[in-house]
Amino acid sequence: MLSPRFGLGARVTVRRADPPGHLRTPWYIRGQSGEIERLCGAFANPEELAYNRPGLPAQPLYRVRFHQCEIWPDYSGPAQDTVEVEIFQHWLEPAP
């Protein structure tokens, strides 16, 4: 397993990337910044598993919390509404 790079509460940005293949990072969250809610553990990389490769070393998987009003400029709900997404470490960078 790769060692976790981000601690609880760390500000992170999701990479704005579009590699080919099987990806588990939704489009709407790429390029967005949020904070680490928890480390879920380490899991084989689904981008490798999809092609019958072992996906090792296991990638740390985080739950990242985002504010809805930052993701959708016309979000109609109140400012405290959030969305949490599971994101693998190789999709995350420290937020600027």
């Binding site: 588990r24 990072t25 939704p26 969250i29 879920c40 553990g41 899991f43 689904p46 998987l61 739950r63 809805q68 709900g77 109140p78 405290q80 509404d81 959030t82 969305v83 949490e84 997404v85 599971e86 994101i87 693998f88």
Partner: peptide
Amino acid sequence: PEDVEVRVHDSTADM
């Protein structure tokens, strides 16, 4: 109510 936080959980991976 407006003072409640709505938190959406997107099950994108292994949870």
